[in-house]
Every structure is written in C-alpha cells, then in structure tokens.
Design a binder for these strands. Structure first.
Lengths: 236, 236
DNA sequence: CGATAACATGAGTGAGCGCTCAGGTTCATG
DNA sequence: CATGAACCTGAGCGCTCACTCATGTTATCG
C-alpha cells in the first residue's frame, strides 16, 4: 500500500449524495462471479458468457479501480470521476465504459474492501486468539478507518445496495464468528448480540474518521467500549 | 411542525460543495451578540449599531431559519438553499440577504442547536441527579440524533469554524460538568477523560443517525458504553 | 498482414447549485 | 401622506459534475 500522495486540499465541507436508482447492471460477469442469477431472462442474450476482456481493457480496469480507491479515500465519495480518470491515466469515457455509473464504481471498490475485511475477520476467527480476536479486529479496523474512508462513509450513507449486500453480510458473519469465539472464551459477555457489536464498530469507525482521533484517543475510547463488552454488571 | 410538504425528487446524484472562503461576515450584529470583537477597525463605521431589523425582515429571518432547520434535517447539509427559500415562502435573494453564504446559514442553525443542547446539559448538571445526569443526556442526545442530523453531520465534517467554536465549547463544558458530577457521585470511573466521553458521544450520534438505530438497538449499544464508563477493571 | 470487433478518446450535454443584481415593493419616519 | 431607505424578487451567471457519443485507435484472429 503506497502512502497517500496528494493530500493538500483538506477543507471541503462537501457532502456526497449518490442516489441509488440503478441496481442491476452487468459488471458482475467481468470477474467471473456470474452466479447464473435471478431474473435477466436466461436464454437468448449472451449476458453471462464471461467474454474475457481484452488485455488493454483488463489493465485499464485495474488501474481505474486502483485510482478510484485512492481518490475516494482522500476525497470521500464526492471525489469526481474525472479525477479518478486522470489518476488512472485514462479518459473519462473509459471509466464509464467499465463502470456504467459512478455508483457502480463506488460499489466495486466497496465490494473489494469489504471482502478484504471479511477475510481478515475470518482469518482471525480461525487462527487468532479467541479471547482477543474480536478486540484486535476492532482496533485494527478503527485504526485503518481513515484509509477506508470510502467504506465508512458509504456504508454510513445507507449505500447498502443489493449488489454489495452479500459482502456486507460476509463481513458481518466474520465479526459474528469473532464474537462467538470471544464469548466461548469468556472474554465477552454472553448477552451481547451481534448487531450491538456491529453498531459499536461502525460508530467508532465513523467517529474516528470524522473527528480524526489520534492514537491515544482511539485507545481510550475503544477501552471504554471493550470494558463495556466485558463487564458482567448489566443485562440486556 | 407541519409535515413535510415537498418530498418528491429523491434521485439526485448531485454533490454539494460549499466552500469556506469567506469567514468574516456581519450576521452577528443581527441578534445583538456584538461583543465589540477583535479587529474590524472599531471607530468610524457603524458596524455594530444593532440597527434593529424591519418587521418583515425579522419575520422572514425567522421563517428562513425554521425552514432551513427542517430542510437540512431531512436532506443533510447538502439540502439546497432554494428548497429552504421555497419552504420559507421567500425568494432566494432573501435567504442570501440574511445569510451571505450557505455556510453562514448552516452555522446559524448549528449555533442555535448547540446552544440549546448546551443549555440542556447545564440544566441537567445543575438540577438533575448527579449519578445519572450524564447517561440521561447521552441517551437523549442519541435519541434525538435523527432530528439533529444537521449538527451531527456538520460537526462530523469538521465544520467547526471559528464562528461556532464558542458554542461547541459551551456544549463541551456542559458535558464536562455532567461528567464531573457523575464521577463525584461514583457513577463513572475517575480515570475517564472528557474527550473520551465526547468521542463516544459523537460516535454514537453518528452511528444512530447513519444506521438508523431502532429504540432497542440504541438501548443495547448505549448500555455497553455506559457499562464501560462505569466499570473499574481498566486503567488508562 | 488484413479485417473487424472491441476498446479508448475527450469535447460536449444537460442539470443542479451557490450566488448576484437591477428593478420593483414595503415598512418606518416626520 | 410623502419620502427614502431597507427590503424583497427571481431571472440569470458561472461553475462543477455525471454521463454520452461520434470518431479514432488497438488488440485479436484467420
């Protein structure tokens, strides 16, 4: 992960509003996730033929995704597609060829990031220390929140579209595993539910992103939350 | 409070960008807060003469503030000034006569809301139960977060301009009083610092706003945080 | 090496938004 | 009532941004 390169203009009270109109575009067939999905009149049209991308197209797609991840991490979801194109070294049209709407581009990135996080959670649940795995993941996530600004803000904006619902669920499942292990190990109270943990997690991430918590504040804030998850004094 | 009148056009991929260029406009003299402030060449120009507004102007100003509070509560800070004007029943120009920039309008609302909250906190600190005051305020604030979306989002976006810094500080002081009282009463651990509490508070508000916590989830999530504030098991 | 379909290009389109200003309207004062 | 200053109006400006499309370019295959 290269360090952030262009971080100058920070003062923007911009607010993104993306809109959730279109939900069913191709885009899934590109990588090969075609699940032979619902609807889409299965038959005549050569929808999910996988049609491997041309070499240059595949390269450009990767560069666009990479550029978009950087731009949206810096600017938030309100970063412009033109900046993404410029950073990727392609023309605007190329961006829109690969991702028919800005929303589609954002969702592709979110899917990737969410998948990565879900993987980390699952890995920790499988191989980590059961008693501390949840707390480690929690701390890591909040610590990285600044970099993952896209995910944090988009998830926050209610951008949980049907197309990324699966990825969200995967992450949720990973956290659920971590929670179960922690509870079995006696590190977290039995009466804490998954959605409570998820709510705390997302809140802390948002807080850390928006208010730019420093390391010490992160530690103290998470400390309170972790103690709350451990204590036996309350019943829900 | 009249019900929402014009809620049709939800599909807008628009992106608002406000800009923070101008920071020193009049606006303070309107209500009479003129503190004889720094700079501004005190002398010849009749800057802070209080010049009472004409009746219609005062009425319109109030209607604009009221409309803005509603619009920004629904749409977030990206709500348009035109919608504010329409809801207030005035022309755009009138809005910009009273508030030279959109930013100024937003800050006027924030100032009002923050002042109200600071008052509530101070009142609770003075007359409420020391042991539960902080928790009551915390719960109330999160419960109202959806209505106060403007404040939550703007504070989140780092919109703490110099012109509202005082109001933020007042709220912070109020929370500080509640915290002190709670600690004196033995309801909250001594080693919890104010910024930790504020961080938890803002995080919870953001989470509640963005993820639309229901009553039960609010209760459970705040329960964990409160237990964390109460427990004696950790040292910071 | 052609031939062709896939792909890339980037000026242009349309829409939204913050903000302005010339001209009309209304309130306060004597 | 008359007068003038304060106020209101709303078409319009300038800008940004998501998105399109006619034209030019390139990879792939026989």
């Amino acid at each position: 992960m290269p360090p952030v390169a262009l971080a100058a203009t920070e003062m923007r009270p911009a607010v993104a509003q993306v809109g959730l109109w279109n939900c069913a575009w191709a885009e899934a067939a590109v990588i090969g996730e075609g699940a032979g999905g619902a609807g889409a009149t299965p038959g005549s049209d050569r929808a999910n033929a996988a049609a491997p991308l041309r070499a240059d197209a595949r390269r450009n797609r990767a560069r666009i995704l990479d550029a978009a991840e950087h731009v949206f991490a810096e600017r938030g979801p309100s970063g412009s597609t033109e900046e993404v194109a410029a950073r990727a070294g392609v023309a605007i049209g190329t961006v829109f060829r690969h991702f028919p709407t800005k929303q589609a581009l954002l969702q592709a990135i979110m899917k990737e990031l969410l998948g990565r996080l879900a993987g980390q959670a699952a890995e920790l649940a499988a191989n980590g220390d059961p008693a501390t795995g949840l707390f480690v993941f929690f701390t890591d996530l909040v610590g990285q929140a600044a970099e993952k600004r896209t995910v944090v803000e988009l998830l926050a904006e209610g951008g949980i579209d049907v197309s990324i619902a699966g990825s969200v669920q995967a992450l949720r499942d990973g956290v659920g595993q971590l929670l179960s292990r922690a509870q079995e190990a006696g590190a977290v109270r039995e009466d804490v539910q998954l959605d409570t943990v998820v709510a705390l997690l997302t809140s802390a991430c948002q807080g850390a992103v928006q208010a730019a918590w420093d390391q010490d504040l992160q530690r103290r804030t998470l400390g309170v939350i972790f103690d709350g998850l451990r204590t036996q004094r309350r019943r829900e």
